[in-house]
Design a protein around this nucleic acid. Sequence first.
DNA 1: TCATATTCGTGAGGTAGGTCAACAGTGGGT
DNA 2: ACCCACTGTTGACCTACCTCACGAATATGA
Lengths: 187, 187
Amino acid sequence: MYQILREHIEKIVPLSDEEFAFVARHFTARKYKKHQFLVQPGDAVKHYYFVVSGLLKLVYTDEDARQHIVSFAMKDWWEGDFYAFYTQTEATLSVECLEDTEVLCFSLQDYRDLCNGLQKMERFFLEKVNFGFLAAQRRIISMLTSSAKERYEQLIKQYPSLVQRVPKSQLAAYLGVSRETLSRLYQ
Amino acid sequence: MYQILREHIEKIVPLSDEEFAFVARHFTARKYKKHQFLVQPGDAVKHYYFVVSGLLKLVYTDEDARQHIVSFAMKDWWEGDFYAFYTQTEATLSVECLEDTEVLCFSLQDYRDLCNGLQKMERFFLEKVNFGFLAAQRRIISMLTSSAKERYEQLIKQYPSLVQRVPKSQLAAYLGVSRETLSRLYQ
DNA sequence: TCATATTCGTGAGGTAGGTCAACAGTGGGT
DNA sequence: ACCCACTGTTGACCTACCTCACGAATATGA
C-alpha cells in the first residue's frame, strides 16, 4: 500500500528510506465501500486523499439536486475538496466511492509538516499541482471548443480504462451532457 | 514596476531586501502594444509573464480559426502558455495584448533558479498554482452547471472591472457563447 | 479629417442537446 | 431465488444557443 505511494512520489523526487519513512508517518490508511461518502457538503474537511486502489468521484450537486462530476480518481491519483481542505472551510463538494476504495490520507497539518520538513515534498506537490492545473485548463478548452461527441471521444482516448469501469450516466455527468444524449451518440 | 511584483509576492511570503534583489534579478521588464502577440502557436515559449499594467488574453484558436479565451490577465496576474513553457514544447496557445501592457517575465531556467535558490519562492509558486487550480476547477463547475446568462452574471460579479475594459465579443469568447447570444441576454 | 475597422444590436431560421416518459436487461443483496 | 434498484436505450417534443445577414454607432489611425 505504502509502496504505491513511494513509487508515485519517486517518479518526481527520489527519496532515501529515512525520508520515505518520514513521509509515510504523515499518511493514514483507510478503506471505504462502494457508495460510501468520504466527504459530504457541509462537512469539515479534515483530509485529502491519495487513491491506492478503487475509484472515487468528486461531485458538485446543484440546487436541483443534479450531480456534476468535477473529477474521477483512480489508483495513483489524488482527490478531495481541495478548496475546503486548504482553507479549512465547509465542504461544498462531495467525494464518493464508485468502487470499494483504499486510500492514504493526510490532514492540512500533515501537509504543512511535509512541506516544511522535507523540501522534496514541497517540490513534489508543486509539480503535481502544476500538472493538475494544466489538466483543468485542457478540460476548459475542451468544453469551450468541442461538442458532446467530441468530448466523449477525447475521454475514451485519454482514459479508456475509466470508460470501462464507470456507468455511462456518470460519464455523462462528467462531460456535461444528459445520459440520454450520451446514449444516442453512437446509435 | 518591481515594487508591484514585490508587494504581490509579499502577500504570500515576506522577503528581505537581499532576497527580493535576488528575485528581481531573474525578471526582465518588457512593454507591448495593444494587439501585439507575446506568444503565438508554434513559437518556442521562452517566457512566462507577470502583468504589471495593461491586459492580456490567453487564446486557443481552433481549426475553424475561432478564438476561445482560456483566461484574461490584468495587473498582478500571471499569464502564458504554461504547458509549452514548462515542458519546453511549441506553443499551442497564443498570448495577446488587449491594451498596451507592461510585464515582468522569466525563463524556465530563471524559474528553476528561483525555486532552488530561495525556498520561499517555491512556497510562493506552490501557493499561486494551488489557487490557480482551484479557480480553474470553479470555472469547470460553472460550465457544467450554469447557463450562458448565469455565467455572464458570475463574471460580472467576480471581475466587474474586466467587464468594463473588454469588448463583449471577447467576454463571449471567454464564456463560450456567441457574441450575438451575449448581446441578447439583457435586451 | 476622412476612411476604415471595430463594436454592438437585432431578425430569421437552424440544430445540438435537454426533458419527460416508457421499457427492457442486468446484477446485488437478502 | 427472488426482488428491486440500477443501467442503457429510444421516441416525441422543447429550448437554449448558433449561424448568417444586415445596419448603425463609435473608435482608430494615416
